[in-house]
Amino acid sequence: MSTKSKQIYNTKKYHKVRQLYEEGLKRVAQLQGKELELPDGVAKIDDLDTLDAKARLRQVVDGIIAQIMLTGRPVLEVPNRSASNIIWDENNDMLLMGENTTSKSLLSLSSALDVTRLVRVMEIVNDLLEQNLHTTKRDLFYTDVNLFKEQKNSDGLIEDLATVIRATRNSTHIIASAMGNCVGRLRIRDGNDILDLSRMGSQGWQVNPALDSVEILETDAEFVLVVEKNAAMVRLAEARFWERFPCIIMAGRGQGDMASRMFLRRLSKMGLPVFLLVDADPYGSYIASVYMRGSKRLSYESPFMATPDLHMLGVLAKDLDEYNIPKEVRIPFTAQDAKRAKELLNEDFIKANKKWEMDLKLMLKNKQKAEIQAFTTKGFKFLVDEYLPRKLETGDWI
């Protein structure tokens, strides 16, 4: 790949970023060939290929048939995905699903509809695996809209089935619609196409939810910058930020869809430091927590989606005064903002990160928030030419 950015990027000036990069490479070398060590009491989930996913699914079906033959009262053990079964693994710094399950009787009148819907999802997944095809959650819903009634019903059953066969949702070949974008110093193979993401325009490559068909070929980036909003990514892409700093830029459009978080996890496992740019509000901190530790709803997928080493570059609450953001573009806190901030401050992983805890407390004290776009009051180029370079130079991140 081109080394143009390496000639501009001053590793002495930005030595704190370079230090993280070198530490990341050493960590990758040390962990080569080693599996992630999970604590006792958590469910072990695998990212399966098509053949193994089919085998797991048939194993579950065979178990149900065996129960029918032996007792006539088949029961399916479905892992409990409620908050009471979520564990914070402090060592790996991620949220994980525990081993508690809920028993669902397949012959109970109270669960007859749920079971019928689940069996229908099993049938669809089996067909997808047999034909080696992928479908979206929306498409699955429309295969039997009269049975599922609402998409939230089929969505929940997709996740139930994934946990029952102890696999990632992608292993079932059911994917979410593409949302995230990626641009910068990276070459990939997407299906039969080889793509240079530094030549993909201002929108970049749309992260393919069928990540089993995506292969990372080459990068000379030294960090990844994830931005909350696509508008910020367009601004960075127009400035060709990766030619000034050796980086890959991703836009998750909010907290990031599954495919974006899984792809980011892949990049971080290569040793690349990851920085996050979000709005200066409690939701921005929540987005950071999802990228870092995974979400509670999808805690069983955290080993494949969480990026614990991610650093929140901004926008921090203290930045509003440090960069003299005008009062006119600062937004008053709502009751919902205060509620979310207090909920985050009660989380153990926030309490363990004093800089993060202090930033949330300052936000709550000032009762103000601001969007990334607030920097445009200081000029359209301020974000790219002043704010981000200064942040990266001084190491001012959480």
Rank of each mutant, 00 (worst) to 15 (best):
Y286N: 15
Y286V: 10
I287W: 11
A288D: 14
S289H: 14
Y291E: 12
M292V: 07
M292F: 08
R293S: 10
G294D: 01
S295V: 01
S295P: 00
K296E: 12
L298Q: 13
Y300T: 11
Y300K: 07
E301I: 10
S302W: 05
P303L: 03
P303S: 03
P303C: 05
P303G: 01
F304V: 07
F304N: 05
A306H: 13
A306C: 12
A306M: 14
T307K: 00
P308C: 06
D309H: 08
L310K: 01
H311L: 06
M312V: 15
M312D: 09
L313F: 03
L313T: 05
G314Q: 03
V315W: 02
L316I: 08
L316C: 06
D319S: 06
L320E: 01
D321Y: 01
Y323K: 02
Y323N: 02
N324G: 02
N324I: 01
N324E: 02
I325P: 04
I325L: 04
I325R: 01
P326M: 11
P326H: 12
K327Q: 15
K327D: 15
K327V: 15
E328T: 10
V329T: 12
I331A: 05
F333A: 04
F333N: 06
D337F: 05
D337C: 00
D337K: 00
K339L: 12
R340M: 11
R340L: 15
K342T: 13
K342H: 08
L344S: 06
N346M: 15
E347D: 11
E347I: 05
E347M: 14
I350R: 06
I350H: 10
K351R: 14
K351H: 13
A352C: 07
A352S: 14
N353C: 13
K354C: 09
K354R: 13
K354E: 15
W356R: 09
E357Y: 08
E357T: 01
E357L: 03
M358V: 00
M358N: 09
M358I: 10
D359K: 06
L360C: 09
K361Q: 14
K361Y: 10
K361M: 13
M363Q: 07
M363V: 08
L364H: 08
L364V: 09
K365Y: 12
K365N: 11
K365W: 10
N366P: 00
K367D: 10
Q368Y: 00
Q368F: 00
Q368D: 05
A370I: 01
A370S: 09
A370T: 03
A370H: 03
E371D: 07
I372G: 01
I372C: 08
Q373E: 15
Q373V: 10
A374Q: 06
A374E: 05
F375P: 13
T376V: 13
T376Y: 14
T376F: 10
T376R: 09
T377F: 04
G379Q: 03
G379V: 01
G379H: 02
G379S: 05
G379M: 03
F380Q: 14
F380C: 02
F380W: 14
F380P: 09
F380N: 11
K381N: 15
L383P: 03
V384L: 08
D385R: 03
D385Y: 04
D385K: 02
